[in-house]
Design a protein around this nucleic acid. Structure first.
Lengths: 352, 352
DNA sequence: CTGAAAGCGCTAACAA
DNA sequence: TTGTTAGCGCTTTCAG
């Protein structure tokens, strides 16, 4: 391979065929060619010339240069999606929805990754340099200096799956706090007393908000979390949480309900609890997950969980971004989407 | 929302600050500004002017326009990734690796989706219009007319996770046929006689090649597939396969080994076989999966499987593409990557 | 070391 | 209906 590279001659990319070439071939002016390939508002070109031009274009295999057009129009029809990491099906599904829907609306997706240290400057600048028409920032927050930089470049940003009360940035986010409260209230109604929480990555705002909602809810009944495990978003992390909750602990000190930050985590928790500690779900311990991922429906889990309407969230995000692109901004839009509790079979009503 | 849109004035995107603005501010010519922002080969600009220019640039918040540069240089530093669908962690992981590695090498990723009818023309044309420097086509094959169109545009294409003997297109693909043979040979060595296959989407070449390898391998011992189920790449599909293999069938007619196209499918197969039909894995039936996804390591599965070296495959793909971008093409490169059998606990040695 | 000027491929205002 | 012309912001000779 190395050999080959050395031996082969460097390459200069050939010039592409341009509207001038087509114009020459068709015997018309370049502007007319441009008109034909811009059939916006009834551009007036005679049938005859259109035909001549199309013939020439086909013969030469002409395609307009989006780059040149972008330079002229000061707009690229590209949306930058800045992604923190792919660590759950939530990210995969939302990215897929984003790019498909944007494509449907005539935009293309430029995918940018945040470096693992989480610093955003260079990635954001890259997006700005490419003159994207808008930016979707997933699972990350903009600092205020970065936000004003986007303002300078007249490039709208919408945060997806993250929000902050103190930011001037538009955002769409599941109402994680409320979802946490809903879970708490449900567990109270079903008469649970010893409630545990299995968290995601320390400090992740989705995880923190869910916990806070849970705590505030059960706090109104004078309860506090019995136990907590801080891990990551994997099955294995759920297993470890079960270890931490059930080993070296008297049976009376076990939680009677556990809220897991993710369905995957909940599955790991359930598997380990059942197989290693002989815990019956939900007779001994109730479990609630989050996401309503496919795994929640697997027969052995039948997991009660909170479903995130990802598609709604994605559409809202795109709508807001499109407004920002097309119209002058008037106020900040922070959209909180409610999650929905899906009752399956992992929570027992302990009133009975 | 509708209201708001109507009331607010249409937006015209403001002009960005250009090198001319910086030049004015710094009291130099525009060309010199350009030089400073192109410190490739020892561009000779004096310390003094560099400082003046940087000061002005910072003051005005100047960033070069990649678009204008692309127009001039006839190269965009964008790689188009054309994606068929996201239906397994394999796609998610490989996309993540692709975009991170490309970013590391100074490229950016334009993400394009194939429409659900699978037609590729419009998507490919979109990539060509954006003048991407190269295209990575994942899980799909180029028709010969499309391939020659890319040639016309001097835009190299590498197929990832798909290949064909008859194509002139470079490709990187796991050797699915060989992997299928490996599984078959292993099952023969361990003295299995009644072998079944759970396939992915009908006609998907990865699925077909794995099956063919399996068949050819066991065929040399005079065996044929005992049973087959054609489904999709989900846990549920694996459950259905178990239904199809175990219901309404005498126990003596059960397969003694089943090869599943994916770990997820294998997990569903195992779950259903165990819980509904009381099948012991691997005592009654051995199971082999594919991918070595995280689920293969879950305690309740401990799945024997074939691991795909995704990272190697991604790197090879990028290497080939970079060669194609930088050097004249000399021959077609079809890279077959071998999978590796990972023995865990779902295959029983029936010689003992 | 720096400036002037041409040109990448396109759109759009203006003329004809 | 069509052609002419002036840029969009940049890189790159070519002079000086």
């Amino acid at each position: 391979m190395i050999e080959k590279r050395k031996m082969v001659k460097r390459k200069v990319r050939q010039r592409r065929v341009s509207s001038v070439d087509v114009a020459k071939e068709a015997g018309v002016s370049q502007a007319t060619v441009s008109r034909v390939f811009n059939q916006k508002k009834g551009t007036n070109v005679s049938e005859d010339t259109v035909e001549k031009i199309m013939a020439a274009a086909n013969k030469l295999n002409y395609r307009p240069s989006v780059i040149a057009r972008s330079l002229q129009e000061n707009t690229t029809n590209i949306i930058g999606i800045i992604n923190r990491r792919f660590d759950s099906s939530f990210h995969m599904i939302s990215l897929d929805l984003f790019s498909r829907e944007l494509q449907k609306q005539g935009y293309t997706t430029l995918l940018l990754n945040l470096p693992s240290d989480g610093s955003m400057d260079s990635t954001l600048h890259k997006a700005l340099e490419y003159q994207v028409d808008g930016i979707i920032l997933t699972s990350a927050k903009l600092t205020s200096s970065l936000a004003s930089e986007c303002q300078n470049y007249d490039t709208p940003v919408v945060q997806f799956n993250r929000y902050s009360l103190y930011q001037e940035v538009d955002s769409v986010c599941l109402d994680n706090y409320k979802a946490g409260m809903d879970v708490g209230n449900y567990l109270l109604e079903t008469n649970h007393k010893r409630i545990g929480y299995v968290s995601g990555i320390a400090g992740s705002s989705t995880s923190v908000d869910r916990k806070k909602g849970l705590e505030d809810s059960i706090g109104r009944e004078g309860l506090a979390l019995t136990c907590e495990y801080i891990g990551i978003l994997t099955h294995e992390s759920g297993c470890k949480a079960a270890d931490s909750f059930f080993s070296h602990v008297d049976r009376e000190k076990w939680p009677d309900a556990v809220f897991c930050v993710t369905d995957d985590v909940a599955a790991g928790f359930i598997d380990q609890a059942r197989s290693v500690y002989g815990v019956n779900i939900p007779e001994d311990v109730s479990v609630v997950g989050f996401d309503d991922a496919p795994i929640a429906k697997w027969p052995q889990y039948q997991l009660s969980t909170i479903s995130q309407p990802i598609e709604v969230m994605v559409m809202e995000t795109i709508d807001i971004l499109m407004d920002l692109i097309r119209y002058e901004k008037s106020g900040v839009m922070k959209k909180m989407i409610p999650g929905a509790f899906v009752a399956r079979k992992t929570v027992k009503d302990r009133n009975k």
